[in-house]
């Protein structure tokens, strides 16, 4: 039976490779692209200003902004502005976040707290805290109090929402495991629920930190002598656009630093996610 060893369908000569159609949809980090893009943009901007392609009235050249920055540095006021702003930001954000985590935990854990505080949170969250600034000034004084309070309230509500969402998403199986081993309620909250909610709390912190910077400037625009916001406001009212650019750039760098810090915290605390 010689036929049996022969394939019934002979291999066809004419053939095509199966076209590849998978892959993609998976962005990966590429180093040095971000600074390069930034550098190209600034160089283009400087070049445009030098050649008159970009009018100085429309946008001051980066070199002018740099001079303004050096002026600010030499006047000795740079650190005064930055430290004042940092103090308000850190103070307001820390207290707002701490209170937010506490209230978020209460909402996540207790039915009564959820029934009473959650509607309140939903009602207060969308109110622009800037609109309340005059009230805050009456309540907490024109000094630091009203500015810190604005940031505090601004960071409090997003943190509450992130925290109780995180608590809700902790696997019920893990909590049941804790109960089945006779762990106390406090231990379950501290060792199972809090670490389980931490990823959500940290991504909430990212959002609340950006909100805090926005509110910082808004609060400093009313009745502040020092601070980055006050500097920007002053520059704006004098139409000193080079100083304005310096102020805005400082805010942007502040935002980058905060984002980097939270990224480091995430890496340190959430390394178990791999």
């Amino acid at each position: 039976m010689p036929n049996q060893t022969q394939p019934q369908h002979p291999v066809q000569r004419e053939r095509k490779k199966v076209p590849f159609r998978g892959g993609g949809f998976k962005p990966r980090p590429i180093r040095f692209v971000a600074p390069f893009v930034f550098l190209v943009l600034v160089l283009f901007w400087e070049f445009g200003s030098q050649t008159g392609f970009i009018s100085n009235l429309v946008l001051p050249a980066p070199s002018e902004a740099f001079h303004a920055f050096m002026d600010l540095y030499n006047s000795g006021l740079l650190w005064k502005h930055v430290s004042t702003s940092l103090y308000r930001l850190v103070f307001g954000w820390c207290i707002g976040t701490a209170l937010g985590i506490l209230v978020g935990l209460l909402i996540g854990l207790f039915s009564l707290a959820r029934a009473s505080l959650l509607p309140l949170t939903s009602a207060f969250f969308p109110i622009p805290k800037i609109a309340l600034l005059p009230l805050f000034i009456i309540w907490f004084g024109i000094g630091e109090g009203s500015k810190v309070a604005t940031i505090l309230f601004g960071t409090f509500f997003p943190t509450v929402i992130a925290t109780y969402g995180g608590v809700d998403n902790v696997e019920r199986g893990l909590i049941r495991m804790g109960q089945s081993f006779g762990m106390s309620r406090f231990s379950i909250v501290r060792k199972i629920i809090l670490p389980g909610a931490l990823p959500a709390i940290l991504s909430g912190a990212r959002i609340s930190a950006s909100i805090a910077i926005i509110l910082l400037v808004a609060a400093e625009m009313i009745g502040a002598e020092y601070g980055i916001g006050a500097y920007v406001l002053m520059a704006g009212s004098l139409f000193a656009t080079d100083q304005l650019i310096v102020g805005v750039a400082m805010l942007s760098i502040l935002g980058l630093c905060v984002s980097w810090l939270i990224g480091r915290t995430e890496k340190a605390l959430l390394n178990w996610r791999g």
Binding site: G173, R176, F181, K191, I192, P195, W272
Partner: peptide, 13 residues
């Protein structure tokens, strides 16, 4: 009375 669960219930952290 100690349980062993289907989904292991280990804390990932």
């Amino acid at each position: 009375l100690t349980y062993i669960f289907q989904d292991f219930a280990l804390l990932p952290w």
